[in-house]
Nucleic acid binder design. Sequence first.
RNA 1: GGCCCCAUGGUCUAGUGGUUAGGACAUCGCCCUUUCAAGGCGGUAACACGGGUUCGAACCCCGUUGGGGCUACCA
Length: 471
Amino acid sequence: MRSPRLRFAPSPTGFLHVGGARTALFNWALARRLGGTFVLRIEDTDRQRSEQVYVDAILDAMRWLGLNWDEGPEVGGAHGPYFQMERLDSYRVAAEALLASGAAYRCVCPAREDADTTAPVACSCSVEAVPPGAGGALRFRTPADGHVTFRDLIHGAVSFPCADIEDFVLLKADGVPTYNFAAVVDDAAMAITHVVRGDDHLSNTPKQVLVYRALGHDLPDFAHIPMILGPDRKRLSKRHGAVSIQQFREDGYLPEALVNYLARLGWAHGDMELFGLDEMVAVFDLEGVGKAPAVFDYDKLAWAQASWLKRLAPDELVRRTVPLMAAAGLPVDLDDAVRLEGLVQTLVPRSATLPELVEQARFYFDVPLAWDEAAVAKVLIPGVEPVLGALRERLAVLSAWDHASLEEAFRGLAQDLGLKAGAVIQPARVALTGRTASPGMFEVAALLGRDLVLRRLDEALGRVSGAALPG
RNA sequence: GGCCCCAUGGUCUAGUGGUUAGGACAUCGCCCUUUCAAGGCGGUAACACGGGUUCGAACCCCGUUGGGGCUACCA
């Protein structure tokens, strides 16, 4: 039994998108589950569109998601190199073998420009031998009839009539291999045992099976996973919204949330919804993978994000948030971990993303409040001046500055004034946070500290009297 | 057009011949409540259609319809 080896083979023609990320995730998870090896290979044979920046972006996105590879770029391995453009010799050797055995032939027909042609290619080169050295492309000689049948771990037996498979190109005229050829040569050379990839490759597989056979290699197990579609049931693309991992990262999503959501797109394990990478590895299998394409749902992704925000330990959340707060210009006191964890926890249930949490954390720091003028105009009216004034007096002499004492002070004042608690709390909320919506007032006041609370109340009082001035 | 794949609520799905068809997101309502969230509870909502097979079909077979993919010297 060969040891399990799986691979993710992206082409660096763009950023890593959610579809590719999910394919990578499934390959990674299965490799880990089976105790096998996860290989990362860069398929850069499209010289026109491949770019180094994309290679870097893909590696970066993979690492951010937590999908580490055992062999591949930057880590090396016994089956390298892991860039196809550095493996040209191996394709040439394989090509010569196919040419020698008659499984392939040279073709000097002009390359087709469009893909709309309805008729299969009719290449006369296949009958008239092209002299060696004449250049041109190398085509595979597909059997005229019969079927190519192979077993797919997700779809079962799949069969294609050879008559519908054209004599596809193996090597382009410039000597660079095409996808269907390079992938086979590499997967065989890298001893890949399970080829897990998108459904869009199912129709390419018979061609690859033909090449495997012509080369005398054993077939790997194939598993074609369903594609990810947009709400309009068309292939998911930029016009549907954010699709690159990089974009989600910039938008403040947690890698855990993205991975979790992607895992549940096309795969299920009973009724479980929340999975960490380690939890997924423990139970991942191809049997849980469905066959039908899945529509990407941004709402459910948001839910996964919220769930993970709550799932992460407070100190971990602080660790990830502090850099963002510092970048936002907030005076973060790293020594006061208790306070940071406390304020972060009040914000978590009210934030969809990390940047949003940071934005909301602003009032907790000793920086000018971002006043919601509409809130000020509506709540900080002349009538509340005596209320806030009285509140200031009580808080100034409050013996203990904690949640319970503060609650007692607020409620006691309301009662003494014959008001409902909200009549004291709401003005205080606007005074202390600048807005009408915030975490619980007693927690806010406790976290703010007496000094800041009194100063903010003074500032609010100033605003109230200012508003009371005629004109 | 040809070939291939697919088909459970709006969305992601569980289900593998006998279930009141389960869960999650979204949605609606109620509760909680100092605001906003979060949370708790409850509701609406699905087996695409038509034939078979079977004592019995969401599950098996055929067809129809619908959707997706491939059909490049892209991957």
